[in-house]
C-alpha cells in the first residue's frame, strides 16, 4: 500500500516517514525484549562471582569488585559434582546410542517394509505419545524394583533402547522421503534389508538423526523426574538431582555458589545448541510443521 503511495508522490512523504518510524519502533521492541530474556542469565553470571555482602545489597550491583572463582571451586569440592557429571554423561552417551539405533530400525521398518497390521501399529505408536507417563509410573517402578535396578542408572537408560515414539515418528517421516528406487537397486545388488537400512537409508537420514540426537541430549541432560524417583545415593546422582540438593537447608549453600553450580551444569546444553544451531532449527521445521 505504502509502496504504491510512494510511487504516486515521490520524495520523503508521510508514508515513508511512517514506515521508517515503525521500523525503529520494531527494532526497539525486539532489542528490549531480548534484553529482558537475557537478563536472568546475566544476573546469574554476575551473582556467581560476587562476595556475600555484594549479593545482599540494594540497589543490586551488576559487576562485582573482584571475580570470586572460589564460588565455583568450593561447592565443587564440597559435593561430588564430578561424579554427578560422570553419571549424567554416562546416561546421555548410552541413550544417544540407544535411541539412534532402535528408533531408526523401527522407523525403517514402518517406512520401507510392507507387513500386515503396519498401519494400525503405527497408529498405536502415535497414540502412545498422548499417554501421560504418570499412568505407567507405579508398575514401572515396581518392575525396576523387582529387577533390583532401583538406585542404579539402568532405569534411566534401558527403556531408551526400545525406541521412543516421538523419535520413531520423526525418523519415519524423514525415511518416507528417501526414494524407494534406492532400495530396489540395493536389492538387485544382493543387499538384504538390514544392509539396505545400514548402508543406504541410514547415511541419507543423517540430518534427521542429528536432530533427534540433539533433542535426546537436552532431554536426558535436564531430566529430573526419573532421577528423583530411581536414584537414592549421591554416588548415583545425575546433575539435575545434584543441583537440587544445593537448596537443601541442612547444607546451607550461599546463593552465589548455587548460581555458580547452576551455570556450570547448563554449559554443555548451551554449547551443543550454539554449535548445532542450524540443525536444531531445521529439526523444528520438520517436527513443527506436521500440525
Amino acid at each position: 500500500m505504502s509502496a504504491r503511495a510512494a510511487a504516486r508522490r515521490p520524495g520523503l512523504n508521510r508514508y515513508r516517514f511512517l514506515r521508517i518510524f515503525w521500523r525503529v519502533v520494531l527494532l526497539l521492541v525486539v532489542a528490549i525484549g531480548s534484553v529482558i530474556f537475557i537478563l536472568p542469565f546475566v544476573w546469574m553470571v554476575s551473582t556467581s562471582f560476587k562476595a556475600t555482602d555484594e549479593v545482599l545489597r540494594f540497589p543490586p550491583i551488576w559487576i562485582p569488585a573482584s571475580l570470586r572463582f572460589e564460588n565455583y571451586i568450593e561447592p565443587w569440592a564440597r559435593l561430588p559434582f564430578s561424579t554427578y557429571y560422570k553419571n549424567t554423561i554416562t546416561v546421555v552417551a548410552l541413550n544417544l546410542v540407544g535411541t539412534l539405533l532402535s528408533s531408526s530400525l523401527v522407523a525403517f521398518g514402518f517406512a520401507r517394509l510392507r507387513f500386515r497390521g503396519r498401519n494400525i501399529l503405527f497408529l498405536i505408536l502415535l497414540s502412545t505419545m498422548m499417554l501421560p507417563s504418570q499412568v505407567t509410573l507405579v508398575p514401572t517402578y515396581y518392575l525396576f524394583a523387582k529387577l533390583g535396578w532401583v538406585n542404579s542408572l539402568r532405569p534411566l537408560i534401558i527403556p531408551v533402547f526400545f525406541g521412543s515414539a516421538f523419535n520413531i515418528f520423526l525418523l519415519r517421516q524423514f525415511a518416507m522421503t528417501v526414494p524407494l528406487e534406492l532400495d530396489d537397486a540395493a536389492k538387485i545388488d544382493g543387499c538384504g534389508y538390514l544392509a539396505t537400512y545400514w548402508r543406504i537409508v541410514m547415511p541419507l537420514m543423517r540430518p534427521a538423526l542429528g536432530v533427534i540426537a540433539i533433542f535426546q541430549f537436552t532431554n536426558d541432560w535436564n531430566d529430573f523426574f526419573s532421577a528423583l524417583i530411581y536414584l537414592n545415593s549421591p554416588k548415583n546422582f545425575t546433575i539435575a538431582l545434584g543441583l537440587r540438593t544445593l537448596q537443601s537447608t541442612i547444607l546451607y549453600v550461599p546463593m552465589q555458589q548455587v548460581m555458580a553450580m547452576t551455570l556450570i551444569t547448563m554449559i554443555p546444553v548451551l554449547a551443543v545448541f550454539l554449535i548445532a544451531q542450524r540443525k536444531f532449527i531445521q529439526g523444528i521445521v520438520i517436527t513443527g510443521v506436521k500440525g
Partner: peptide
C-alpha cells in the same frame, strides 16, 4: 533449553 531444576533455581533467586 534449560531443565526444570536450573530454571527454578535461577528464578528463586530473581
Amino acid at each position: 533449553l534449560l531443565g526444570g531444576v536450573a530454571l527454578t533455581l535461577i528464578w528463586m533467586w530473581i
